[in-house]
Every structure is written in C-alpha cells, then in structure tokens.
Nucleic acid binder design. Structure first.
Length: 595
RNA sequence: GGGGGUGUAGUUCAGUUGGUUAGAACGCUUGCCUGUCACGCAAGAGGUCGCGAGUUCGAGUCUCGUCACUCCCGCCA
C-alpha cells in the first residue's frame, strides 16, 4: 500500500537548500530521478518542478526507513522528512545547485509507485517525438520542457503586467463564432440546436477587436487561442496562441512603440536581456530587393544584387530571355567560397529548386580566369560590369537566379539563409528584430483571377495611394507592418479602415460586391457606419516567440500538449469518431465511413 | 495534393552481397556492495524486425501497397 499525505506539509522545493540550511529539518516532496543503492547507504535524487536535491537513507540513522527505501524505483512519488547535512568535503557536486548539501531522511512516505517510464526522464535522452507525445506527462517532467513551459508563463505574465500598465483591457471574444471569408480553412463546430448550421472557430479575433474599438474600449488585448485547419509545419499548429491587441486613436508609430515596449518587457523578464529600441525598419520593397524575402534575417550580410540590366543582352539566353519577359536576374556573392565543391554546388542547386528556381548559375572567380559553365557567354564589358556591381574578387563564388521576380527573390532569399547556415555566419544568442513596413495592399491570385488582400480586407491603404485603388491596385501600399525576429515573422498588424465608404471601396477591389459584403460581414460595415474611431492593432504569435526565446526549433517544444503533423493528439487520440447517436442529434451524415 | 527522411528489445540505435540461434548501449529484474551523483560488480528476462501482399529454396535485408512519426513545397488573408 502507498502512504497518504495526511497533514504532511512541504517546507522547501528541491532546488532551495544550501549550506546555510544545514541542520534545518525539512520536508520535501517529489519524484525519484535516480536511485543509487549501495547496499548500505541509498542515494536518491529527488526532483520537483524547481530542481533536484540528493536525499540519503542510512541504516545507521534509521534501519526501518532504510529498509523501506530499498523498494523505491524511478518516478515513485515521495514525501520525505529529514535533516539538511553538509556533504563530505570531497563529495561536493559542483554540477548541482544543491550540490553542497544533502538531506538525511528520518521519515519516508511513498505516495505513489510508478510504472517504469517508457523513456528516461532526462534532457540528454532523445526519445522519438511520437513516444514523447504519447506520454506527454512524462515528457513534461524533463527539465528542458518544464523550463520552456515556465518561461512561457513568465512571458505571459510580463505581457499582462506591461499591457495592464499601459491601460489595456483584457476582453474575451467568442470561440464559437462565424466563418470568416478569405484566408485559412475554418474548424467547424456543428450546432445541435440549429441543425445543419455550423460555428467556426476563430482564425483570429480580428472582427471582434475592431468592434471593441467601435464600442469605445480604446485599448484591448487578449492572449487567445486561434485555429486554422491547414497543414502543419515545425512552426505551425492547428491551434496556436496569439497576443492580440487593438488600439484607438493611434498611428503606426505609436502601435510599434507599444509593441516594442512589450517585447522589451518579455525579454527582460524571461532572458534578463536589455533590448535596444526602436527596432530598425525596412520597407517591404527594400526587404525584397536586398534580401529576397519579406521576413529578412538581418543577422548577416550576403545581400542580393540585381544584375538584370547588365545581362539583358548577354549571349547567355537564359538570362537574356528572363529579362525580356519581365523577369529578374539577381545574384549573391559568397565571398571567399570559390572552394565550394561540385557536390556542394549541386546541393545548393537542389535547395534552390525547392523554391521553384529552374537552375542555379554560378561563377568561381579565380586569379586568372572565371571558372563557370556560363562565363563564356559574357563579353568583357559585361564581365567588367558584373565585377564592379558584385564586388567580385579572386576566391569568390557568385550564384545567380533568373526567373519571374517572385521566384527569383524567394529562391535566392532562401539560398541566402542557407548559405549563412552553411557558412556559420549566424551567431546564437543574437536577437535581431526588424519591422517590415509598407506592404502592398493587394496581390493578384492567378488561379482565381482576382485581387486578394495580402494582409486582410480590413487593412487601410496608405492615404496617398487611395486613388490608385481603381487605377493601379497593385501599386497601392498598405498601412500594415510585420515584426520579424531572426528571419521569422513573429507578429503583424495594421491600421484598419474605419470609414465605411473606404471599406466598401476596398471590398469592391477584392471583387466582393455589396450583397456579398453584407452577407459576410454586414455587421462590421454597420458598426463602421455607427461611429468608428481611427484604430489599428497587432497580433504576435506567442508560440513562435517562445520557440525563439527558448532556442527551440519547433513550437511543439513550447506548447504543453501539441498536435502531430497530421493534427492529431497522440495522448488523447483526438480527433475520434462521433457516435451514431451524436451524429443523429446533429443531423450529420458522414459519407466517408471506414469499411 | 506533392517530394524527402525514419520505423528492428521498454528506449536510442547497429545489422555487410538475401543465408545458421537478429546484436549493442541504456533501462528493467534478481543478487552483492556504506559515499554515489549517468554509482560499481555479477547473473537474467526482454523481439509479430510498423502492418499486408509479392519475388525466392530462404526476406529485417529486394519489390509493391499501406499505416505512423517527421522535414519541406503547395496551403497558411
């Protein structure tokens, strides 16, 4: 039988005791990390949320307690009462915070026995992801994961304290809500009371927070779950958490300043780092031109350089034709990397192909000549121009991508990041924040043959661009901004449209007529017509932010109970089939039944 | 929807050209051990080689299918 807790009350956590506590009588509770039974003396590393303390059972101290301790196994849950004693001078453990002391046990309570765990509960043990997810409660006992989850708590506390100080109000918005048009697939929830009708889980509280501004709450925030039924990635889960906020009577600068203050508070609290603000800004156009991506990693150089004008008449038809057809030829000079082998170049070509680049041209700059499959196609004049534009010196290798602008930028931008990884140009522990501003308002969807909001349909266009909405929609810049950390988008927002006239103008641009608009979000248009303050906001991905703060490469490691890549939960085995009775109540027929 | 990787003991992995009884480490069990801290020593248990077909005298190994986990492309306003 196991022991009951009774009136036993913990006096200390397992990381608290030090030299100064020697001779104190203490009560600790925790899990058995390790047992070292020497036949006589038994050592146990007792672990709780805070840390580990070594406890000792010595038959000379109490024969009965020692005898009982012999049955202890890994992950048993114990309560122990004993005296803090100094370890012998040559037995100190400098690797443990509590390594100067140990607790000599007088009373032992075994609250729970435990099955042998499926994997060792230690950071150094790499269990596979599926076994870790299946036994998530064991995985969460590991110090690293526990540290991440606790850091997440510190971050949300820092956020709440900071925003509360700034006068923000935490307001909950509905989880059972209306399907929003455009954007990701919704998770649907059938309504029993309204058979045949469905709620959608929110992809973001976007419309509700705008309504709260119209209602006059002025500054709103919420740390809130959002849902998107799309395929997963290392940094994408079907349910994820946003730090969502919205403010009235503010412009972009004021929102970015508040957001920067919040990020500073988080990093101070979690990492004890003092970030420098304001964060640098770069326009969307500059980001694409110099780094190829709208989320540039500015921890290293390797900037992209356009050479379309130089190669437009070159004998190398691939380049010339791309320029003729409105494409872009851009290059990266990898300084001193002419030593790349054929194999390395092939790998990089394959890498670029993932992003649709049809090829990766290269030139190695040697002392005497250019070594390259394409060098022979260039005139001396073109070579000289390339040399000057790209600052080519002996020992360099330069990579070219020639394609439509979108592909050239994406492929070369990704190649830039890959080169930096391979060349180890990125120092750990560097946090590089960059605001990307002046996004286009729209882009053109080739498959659906219509304009689409790049951000969302409620984003305000730049005032000076409003006229172009009819004449040249793609040239319209928006008042949207993203915050990028180390090349990863961690947040984004915009000033919203607060005029109903402008809102319907933008909706028209998107091919949504008044009837459809009323059907889909008439309530918003109505609200906008009822006295809407100028307003805007921003939302941060808490999971991604924590991933970067914790040095993890998957957000699953900062989420207590994450889903697999197929959006299932290995622990609870959700999702699962509904019973026929449930389905009947909901008036739902499942067409794809298992045979 | 597409491409790549992985799947062998409780866990992490090895397993050669298709060939005798499928191995290692850790963990686990038992015994010994009073100063370990990833304790030590000795012995032992533990396998539907993800699953299903096929080729073969013979399959962990080859082929096809399928499932799971994972990385990426598409997708994610």
């Amino acid at each position: 039988m196991t022991d009951l807790l009774g009136n036993l009350k913990r006096t200390h956590h397992c990381c608290q005791l030090r030299n100064t506590d020697i001779d104190t009588h203490v009560i600790l509770m925790g899990w058995v990390q390790h047992r070292r039974d020497h036949g006589g003396v038994i050592f146990i590393d007792l672990r709780d949320k805070e840390g580990i303390t070594q406890i000792v059972f010595n038959p000379e101290n109490s024969k009965a307690v020692h005898e009982k301790a012999r049955d202890i196994r890994s992950e048993y849950v114990l309560g122990v009462k004993g005296k803090v004693i100094a370890r012998p001078d040559d037995m100190l453990n400098p690797n443990m915070e509590t390594g100067a002391i140990e607790v000599l046990i007088d009373e032992l309570y075994i609250f729970s026995k435990a099955k042998t765990p499926a994997f060792l509960i230690e950071d150094r043990v790499e269990a596979s992801e599926s076994i870790r997810l299946q036994y998530r409660y064991l995985d969460l006992r590991r110090p690293q994961l526990k540290k991440n989850i606790l850091a997440r708590h510190q971050a949300t506390m820092a956020i709440r304290n900071y925003l509360d100080d700034k006068g923000f109000v935490d307001i909950e918005t509905p989880v059972l809500t209306k399907s929003t048009p455009e954007g990701a697939r919704d998770y649907l929830v059938p309504s029993r009371v309204n058979q045949g009708e469905f709620f959608a889980l929110p992809q973001s509280p976007q419309l509700f927070k705008q309504l709260l501004m119209i209602a006059g709450f002025d500054k709103y925030y919420q740390i809130v779950k959002c849902f998107r039924d799309e395929d997963l990635r290392a940094d994408r889960q079907p349910e994820f958490t946003q730090i969502d906020m919205e403010l009235s009577f503010v412009n972009e600068e004021q929102i970015m300043e508040i957001a920067e203050g919040m990020i500073v508070a988080i990093f101070k609290r979690v990492r004890d780092l003092d970030l420098v603000t304001p964060f640098p800004r770069i326009t969307y156009d500059d980001a694409l031109s110099r780094f190829g991506l709208d989320r540039p990693d500015l921890r290293f150089g390797l900037e992209l350089c356009e050479v379309s004008d130089i190669v437009k008449d070159a004998g190398f038809k691939v380049f010339a034709n791309v320029v003729k057809n409105g494409g872009l030829v851009k290059a990266i000079n990898a300084k001193g990397c002419a030593t790349f082998t054929r194999k390395q170049i092939d790998e990089l070509t394959e890498f670029a192909a993932v992003y649709k680049a049809k090829g990766l041209a290269w030139i190695k700059i040697k002392e005497a000549e250019w070594q390259s499959p394409i060098a022979k196609f260039f005139t001396d004049h073109e070579k000289e121009a390339l040399k000057n534009r790209l600052d080519l010196e002996p020992g360099d290798i330069v990579f070219f991508v020639a394609d439509q602008p979108k592909i050239t930028n994406e492929a070369l931008g990704q190649l830039r990041n890959e080169l930096a990884r391979r060349l180890e140009l990125i120092s750990d522990d560097t946090y590089n924040f960059t605001w990307v501003t002046h996004f286009p308002l729209l882009d053109y969807d080739e498959t659906e043959k219509r304009y689409q909001a790049l951000h969302h349909p409620f984003t305000a266009p730049l005032e000076e661009d409003i006229e172009k909405l009819t004449s040249d929609p793609l040239a319209v810049k928006s008042r949207a901004y993203d915050l990028v950390l180390n090349g990863i988008e961690i947040g984004g927002g915009s000033i919203r449209i607060h005029s109903p006239e402008l809102q319907s103008k933008v909706l028209h641009c998107l091919g949504i007529d008044d009837t459809q608009a009323n059907e889909k979000f008439g309530f918003l248009l109505d609200a906008l017509a009822s006295g809407a303050p100028p307003h805007g906001g921003i939302a941060f991905g808490l999971d991604r932010l924590m991933m970067l703060l914790c040095g993890e490469d998957s957000i699953r490691n900062v989420i207590a109970f994450p889903k697999t890549q197929k959006a299932t939960c290995l622990l609870t085995e959700a999702p699962s089939k509904a019973s026929p009775a449930q389905l009947q109540e909901l008036a739902i027929k499942v067409s794809k039944l298992e045979e």
